[in-house]
Design a protein around this nucleic acid. Structure first.
Length: 279
DNA sequence: ATGCCGTATGATATACGA
């Protein structure tokens, strides 16, 4: 028998994972668990909380994520993209004139732009006249809105992911009624995030598969004695795609078991699988 | 919507998360 000739390489789907790790230096075992479970092609991290020189490069090299861009600073914030797929461009943008390491992006094959965001949390009081952090959050989302509105084109292949710090839908929080005055689910934030979504007609890659009447969370506070029993979560972490990529959405999953890592992040990974982009 | 927990840093208290 002649040896089977390998056929034309059929492009594999892409698995994109986003995770607010709350310190990457504490999340080595967690990263290994998540990679073992999903083997994502691209990992987008927020709240790495580390300078670029102290980022755990060996860990990601060992796991095969040899293509990386990182944007960190001491103590707070920090984002990174670690990929098994080579990318061609390193986008990083300053929002609100503050270089506080909340965005980084790459261009993947097929001209697919992937942008990783850590939107400001916004502090405790949902009133920008007394709380600058809330103003910063609203300004940040407004600047994203303008940016995507300016760039809007029917064929744009853009994926935006990250910790948006906003739970957009009623069933993205454990109690819509009780959270309307709580930062992350106030009407002003819901309006802002919807405007941003509409700016490029983004499709929510997770709700694409999960009906809106179903509760869905990606974050549970550290301050509950038993996060699973109380289950007072919020869906703050998102993967959105432009309409040109909507038909590529194959699957979405939120990896709830990660909340039981020791030690855990208060956020869990969100994973979306995209069918190959055919030219 | 109070939990009162977890992370970070010229740390032994304080800022921040949301």
């Amino acid at each position: 028998m002649p040896k089977a000739k390998p056929g034309p390489a059929s492009p594999a789907p892409w698995r994109v994972l986003t995770w607010n790790v709350n310190s990457i230096r504490l999340r080595g075992e967690g990263v290994k668990d998540v990679v073992g479970r999903y083997s994502p092609d691209v990992i987008c991290l927020q709240e790495t909380k580390v300078t670029d020189d102290l980022f755990p490069h060996e860990l990601f090299d060992t796991l095969g994520y040899t293509h990386r861009v990182i944007r960190g600073q001491p103590g707070y914030n920090g984002v990174a993209i670690a990929s098994r797929i080579p990318f061609s461009a390193d986008h990083r943008r300053v929002f609100c004139s503050k270089d506080d390491c909340r965005h980084i992006g790459v261009t993947l094959p097929g001209g697919v732009e992937l942008h990783n965001f850590y939107i400001p949390a916004g502090g405790d009081i949902p009133d920008r006249t007394v709380n600058d952090k809330f103003g910063h959050k609203l300004d940040f989302v407004a600047e994203m809105t303008d940016w995507f509105a300016e760039r809007r084109q029917r064929d744009n292949r853009i994926v935006i992911v990250g910790d948006f710090n906003i739970a957009p839908l009623e069933n993205d929080v454990w109690s819509h009624k009780q959270l309307l005055k709580i930062v992350s689910h106030t009407p002003i934030e819901l309006e802002a995030i919807e405007k941003m979504r509409a700016a490029h007609d983004f499709v929510d890659g997770v709700r694409h598969f999960v009906p809106a009447d179903q509760k869905l969370y990606s974050w549970w506070s550290y301050r509950n004695r038993d996060w699973k029993a109380s289950d007072r979560g919020r869906r703050l972490d998102h993967v959105w795609v432009t309409p040109a990529l909507q038909d590529r959405l194959m699957a979405a999953e939120i990896y709830k078991p990660a909340r039981d890592h020791s030690p855990p992040s208060d956020h869990v990974p969100v994973v979306v699988t995209l069918a190959p982009v055919v030219e």
